[in-house]
Design a protein around this nucleic acid. Structure first.
Lengths: 143, 143
DNA sequence: AGTTGACACTTTAGGTCTAAACTATGGCGA
DNA sequence: TCGCCATAGTTTAGACCTAAAGTGTCAACT
């Protein structure tokens, strides 16, 4: 979100930079994930289900910070690609990776996380920790 | 983008927090801007054109970090609402706010920027400046 | 003048996401 | 048992965005 040239306070400038960094990185991630034939949203599902298998769709939505409706659509796509499966249990679905999904996740997740982490290496380790501290504080202040 | 539970390095955690903060804030901004009957994307155009009137669509796209095609669509919408106008000049368009657009921008932009800045007040001023410094460094390292 | 190329904008198809309406389904009290 | 309600998931309409193809226009060269 852009600036007016009138109010150039540190908070506002920090906000603009953050949006720039995130949107640029997400665009780069889109390119990077193409090698696995995954979109960033699909990668997120794979990584999340790979890390803690068997969540309900609601849990998945909460962890990914998106709506149930969106999760439903994403899973439709991933099921069509035979990467995940829904297993009905009571009135909810539990989500698991298929064998194909596990194979892809075990390759793509570490690779992409390394790539992601490397985009931060412009900062010293001490700076990375400080950035984390500040973002954590900010995040918590917003509930 | 979510975590694997395997690799919890500071860079990765910082990245996840940043995405959280940005996506939460953007969702809140969507709500906040509804009072002006503006979407965040429309607000960005208004703020940008208000700050430096008369850009070409290409310039606007560069500053907003979006594609020309997207700018074109956004301007279609804003022109329909009589908030901006395209003035043909040579082979490009220069974009200006209409009188209505100026009236709205002069109210909405300061108000929203104040709102935005307030979301940062969980951090001390010193911390805000440090955050800005770190983000700037990160941003520059990515071109 | 006619051709070519570069550039600025527009259009289109498709993916992502949301809010809100809709459809089960399982449990609970009357 | 029946009906109700809360919960889990699905569907739909619409906004946003991109990549890529399409259109138009200016200018420079022949």
């Amino acid at each position: 979100m852009p600036r007016s040239h009138t109010l150039q306070s540190a908070p506002l400038l920090a906000w603009l930079r953050m949006v720039r960094v995130v949107s640029r990185t997400q665009r780069a991630a889109t390119d990077h994930l193409r090698q696995f034939d995954l979109t960033p949203a699909q990668f997120d599902v794979l990584a999340q289900v790979g890390a803690t298998p068997g969540p309900s769709q609601q849990e998945l939505a909460d962890r990914l910070l998106v709506t149930q409706g969106n999760v439903c659509q994403l899973l439709d796509g991933l099921e069509k690609k035979k990467l995940v499966e829904r297993r009905r249990e009571g009135r909810s679905n539990r989500i698991f990776l298929t064998t194909d999904g596990q194979a892809l996740a075990s390759q793509a997740v570490p690779e992409h996380e390394t790539w992601q982490a490397e985009r931060m290496t412009a900062l010293e380790e001490e700076e990375q920790r400080e950035l984390l501290r500040l973002l954590r504080k900010l995040d918590r202040s917003q509930q």
